Simulated scan of single mutants.
Amino acid sequence: MNREVKATAPSTLLALFVGAGVIGHVLVRQWYGEIPPLNWYMPIWAGVLALAEAVFGLRLKDRILRRRDAEPIEPIVAARAVALAKASAYVGAVLAGAWTGFAAYTAGEWGFLASAGRDTVICILGAVLAAALAAAGLWLEHCCRVPRDPNDPG
Rank of each mutant, 00 (worst) to 15 (best):
N2W: 13
N2S: 14
V5Q: 14
V5E: 14
K6P: 06
K6Y: 03
A7K: 13
T8Y: 01
S11A: 10
L13A: 11
L13D: 09
V18I: 15
G19N: 13
G19E: 13
A20H: 08
H25N: 10
V28D: 06
Y32T: 08
Y32C: 08
G33I: 07
G33P: 12
E34F: 05
I35F: 15
I35R: 15
P36F: 06
M42L: 12
P43C: 12
P43Q: 13
W45K: 01
A46C: 09
G47H: 02
L49E: 00
L49V: 08
L51Q: 04
A52M: 12
E53T: 03
F56R: 15
G57M: 10
L58V: 14
D62W: 01
R63A: 15
I64W: 03
R68Y: 13
E71L: 09
P72R: 08
E74R: 12
E74S: 09
V77W: 00
R80S: 13
V82H: 03
A83S: 14
A85Y: 00
A85W: 02
A87T: 14
A87Q: 11
S88V: 03
S88I: 03
A89C: 12
A89N: 10
G92N: 03
A93P: 08
V94P: 07
L95D: 05
L95F: 14
A96W: 02
G97D: 03
G97I: 04
W99N: 05
W99V: 02
W99M: 06
A103Q: 13
Y105I: 04
Y105H: 09
T106A: 11
A107W: 10
G111L: 06
G111P: 06
G111A: 09
F112H: 13
F112C: 07
G117D: 12
T120V: 05
I122E: 00
I122R: 01
C123T: 00
G126D: 07
G126K: 07
A127E: 05
A130M: 01
A130Y: 01
A131H: 00
A132T: 00
A132I: 00
L133P: 01
A134I: 02
A134H: 00
L138P: 01
W139S: 11
L140S: 01
L140D: 02
L140A: 01
H142D: 06
C143M: 09
P147D: 09
R148I: 08
D149T: 11
P150C: 11
P153G: 14
G154S: 14
